[in-house]
Design a protein around this nucleic acid. Structure first.
Lengths: 201, 201
DNA sequence: ACAAAATTGGACCTGCAAGTCCAAAACCCG
DNA sequence: CGGGTTTTGGACTTGCAGGTCCAATTTTGT
């Protein structure tokens, strides 16, 4: 049913999604009109509705998925290799560097509020992203526990949840303050408290 | 210049802001039309533009301010009295209870994304809220340091920044998951790490 | 090469929500 | 009471962005 895209079709579709994503990152979801996407990607209105029959909502959903995947990809290979304290720090540095460069342009900020409430699918995308993210962190915590670098008393999932919350909040605060201070503080203090756990226990 | 509101005028204006705020909390910023506000508050279009000459944007700004003030008020008197561990826990419980009840209806969620990018004023409102919030927490940390319940080695502002980030992230995750798990984990682990600081130091 | 199917361009339609305008009513104050 | 001002109601205008439609063109498969 959905199998009707030629090579060229796939390419066009991908170009539209990527272009729309860039446009949204740059100017915010609710500032981007279909016409902007057309201008920016060189696509016609016919193309837009050919590849996204349900219009803007469907396009936004595709963009959300695209951006969600990117968020985790940008943390690799560090995120999947949290096997030593230097590795944790490398991941920490990558995160901060990445968000510092990105500044106010958070890809998912608007997508949560904008599509999140109305589109049930967008909610699922964000939830899925957070779930994968938290699991990757929890895996890292468990690995450190296996090597004795983190106390076995620590609840890995709970610690990962707290760390993820700190990251999300840090990014949110970056959006309004323009500074990465909160992100850094949350990461550093939470990670430090994990390190301390092995010494006190 | 702005001084031209009779008693009745003030009342009407306040009624519009409160009604619009409720409406937005309930259904999200971008789902609320001026007509919805009119219906919900019993105000006419003439009134809306009489009290908010710059239209929707100005109204949204007033709503944002109203909601921002409310966020801190809802944490009182706990937030201003973080002078003992039981007091911290009471504050923690109040926060969780409040957000659990509120669920997905975060007053400022959309206001950040929606007006945040375009209206420079909304940005300022949110920043101001975060600043006041963080300061209140930092004051609590400093008080606990003065009584020796928290190690003097702790950087109060940095700790407050991390805690605030955890809260914001926890709320954000509440919005997409519907669970308060992250908020609880972030609060508990961060506060526990502050408690631990006095014992290890 | 040719028919069927996918792709593309762009003119056109439509609905809606913000914003305008003005005249009627209520209100304030000497 | 009476003139000026604020407050109120609601009809009307306007612009625009999403969505529709279809005909022209290219691609695909045999």
């Amino acid at each position: 049913m959905t199998r009707a895209l030629t090579r060229k079709g796939e390419a066009t579709r991908a170009r539209i999604v990527a272009g729309a994503a860039a446009e949204i990152r740059e100017r915010g979801v609710d500032e981007v009109r279909l016409e902007d996407v057309m201008a920016h990607t060189g696509a016609s209105k016919g193309q837009l509705f050919h590849y996204f029959p349900d219009g803007k909502e469907e396009l936004l959903l595709a963009v959300a998925q695209h951006e969600a995947d990117q968020v985790l990809l940008d943390q690799e290979p560090m995120l999947s290799n949290l096997t030593s304290w230097p590795a944790w720090l490398a991941w920490r540095d990558r995160l901060i560097e990445r968000y510092r460069a990105q500044g106010v342009k958070c890809p998912l900020n608007g997508l949560l509020g904008q599509t999140g409430r109305r589109a049930p699918g967008a909610q699922a995308i964000v939830t899925g992203l957070m779930w994968r993210w938290q699991n990757a962190i929890a895996d890292g915590v468990r690995h450190m526990q296996s090597t004795g670098d983190i106390s076995a008393d620590v609840d890995a999932d709970r610690a990962a949840a707290a760390l993820l919350a700190g990251i999300q909040g840090g990014v949110l605060l970056l959006l309004s303050t323009g500074k990465t201070d909160h992100l850094e503080a949350a990461l550093d203090l939470t990670i430090d408290s994990l390190r301390a756990s092995s010494r006190t226990a």
